[in-house]
Design a protein around this nucleic acid. Structure first.
Ligand code: FES
Ligand code: FES
Lengths: 141, 141
DNA sequence: ATATTTCCTATCAATTTAGTAGGAATTAAA
DNA sequence: TTTAATTCCTACTAAATTGATAGGAAATAT
């Protein structure tokens, strides 16, 4: 399971994609109302995403948030990496958060590592396919 | 990331696959020494796996654990489900642990749900490929 | 000036994770 | 029949993480 933080983030970002532009930024409280997310929590989420280069903001009255790059370049893998950390399922196959395994004598021949390395690679590919623009709701019939 | 519990479990199960039979069960402390896992913690893990139908045990002196079914029928998805819960990344796409999303008005058309449903399905397929017998270390050259 | 917003830091309660403690029940074998 | 070795069971606990909230300071449009 991903954290609620990441789930909130994804919904908020989809909302920004649908409604915001740099000329028309959307304030946090609006998104919070639409998506039923606690406003103060969402505030910190959007700020974290800004620091990571995903969202951008305009301060003061008539301010708010919008996307810092095209929705086609923001995918689930990136969002999860920013808010939940590594995609890798065990520390020895994580590039950024690598940690040695105490259980294993020889990392080079470890079969468990081999498997999880493959799983991580394929999971990333999967998640990269889901960019924000592919997350909008299907039209109701 | 998966829990340490699940990681310990995978290593322990591979060890059982390599070394144990119903006539020659391996005691917990032996596995704990080999895999450098705290023995009392491993005890509870192997018991949980037994209750889930993965391991079997023989009590008393000369007792220990062994696999309850062929290694080819025990895969990573099953182990993670037993010890870490759902594979699904959000609650609304989990079959066993389903929970409604407060953020979403119409679950039927929700694009986020659609994506995570696909991700779960594909992740399960990926993990099902990794049965215990495919997790043994590669031969050193 | 005023209203509205982002931005910042700190704090906090609840939950989950990663174990530990202490022993009861079972079994093999001396 | 005692002893040693094991699984099994329940309860407990410390540390970390999660999911927030509190209380403003700084910026900006009108
Ligand atoms: S080296 Fe990481 S699981 Fe073996
Ligand atoms: S219904 Fe679960 S994310 Fe929309």
């Amino acid at each position: 399971m991903i954290s609620k933080k990441s789930k909130y983030a994804i919904h908020a970002l989809v909302h920004l994609f649908k409604n915001a532009t740099s000329e028309n930024p959307i304030p946090t409280h609006t998104i919070a109302e639409e998506t039923h997310v606690p406003v103060k929590f969402l505030e910190t989420i959007l700020r974290e995403l800004k620091q990571a280069g995903v969202t951008a903001s305009k301060k003061g009255k008539d301010g708010g948030y919008f996307l810092q790059k095209p929705a086609q370049e923001i995918h689930i893998a990136e969002i999860l990496r920013v808010l939940d950390g590594p995609i890798a399922l065990i520390p020895c196959v994580s590039y950024r958060y690598y940690q040695k395994c105490d259980e294993c004598v020889n990392e080079a021949t470890c079969g468990v590592k081999r498997a999880f390395l493959d799983i991580r690679a394929q999971t990333v590919e999967l998640m990269k396919n889901y960019t924000l623009d592919k997350l909008i709701d299907s039209p109701p019939l």
